[in-house]
Design a protein around this nucleic acid. Sequence first.
DNA 1: AGATTAATCGTAATCATTATCATTTAAAGA
DNA 2: TCTTTAAATGATAATGATTACGATTAATCT
Lengths: 137, 137
Amino acid sequence: MNLDTAINKMKSKGYKHTKQRERILEIFSRQDQYIAAKTILKEIQKDFPGVSFDTVYRNLYLLADEEILESTDLDGEKHFRFHCDTHGHHHHFICTDCGKTKAVEFCPMEKIESSLSGYAIDNHKFEIYGKCPQCQT
Amino acid sequence: MNLDTAINKMKSKGYKHTKQRERILEIFSRQDQYIAAKTILKEIQKDFPGVSFDTVYRNLYLLADEEILESTDLDGEKHFRFHCDTHGHHHHFICTDCGKTKAVEFCPMEKIESSLSGYAIDNHKFEIYGKCPQCQT
DNA sequence: AGATTAATCGTAATCATTATCATTTAAAGA
DNA sequence: TCTTTAAATGATAATGATTACGATTAATCT
Ligand SMILES: [Mn+2]
Ligand SMILES: [Mn+2]
Ligand SMILES: [Zn+2]
Ligand SMILES: [Zn+2]
């Protein structure tokens, strides 16, 4: 997923193209990390000083619904990142200092499904937290 | 971990025994599920109508620090449960309806450590969400 | 250009959590 | 048992993130 693909996807879904929305997408493109909603808000405010909370939050959730972004909860705050679709289903190491992520190409679900017969599995979360090589003292 | 063990552990650490604290522990004992902080607050208020938010939250975090409770973020709210130490390190299926959990005796970390050389791993989260057998239509 | 309707703005409200400080009380010692 | 004292609590305010909503603006269509 890149910026143009995301913009086209939104257009094809019938959403209007706005400069605020484009700026949000632009921030996420080429960033391989989760970003807190309020961080995005601050960033957008540099270009659009009067931007509404509502605009930012509504768009983040909309973009997540449309699978252009993916989200996770970190420290009680919603974080978002560009949706990973270059490789298959995978998980992430997340650096607790800089926020950068590294893909982990292993999903534990197949190993445990047999132990959950009778349970209807909707989704799962597997995240590894720590310091990336650049953030270690 | 049971109620008496938890109470004794707190006493041995030098913490005072208060009825509020005992009530909190009592709620968690014998519950095999994560409970939201505010749910605990409401429950405590039945016995202690004037209980302070602070008392509840402070105790939950203290008990988690002392590893009498364990915690996780669900829907942007902190949830707590009695610490599982009857079996080894494990993970949980969590029912999104009733909150009950089922232990999953598999930890994916050993499978992926080799792919994260150079990364300092601090902790990890593996949770499976869905409906338990009792909560399916 | 004008109409239509989504999107945004401005602002207030909500919800969970955290902070502060005066008061109370559990626990240890005389 | 009485006194001491430090921990714990209560009352309340503050914070921080998120959500809500009516009025206004602006993107797209004809
Ligand atoms: Mn990825
Ligand atoms: Mn368990
Ligand atoms: Zn997976
Ligand atoms: Zn594990």
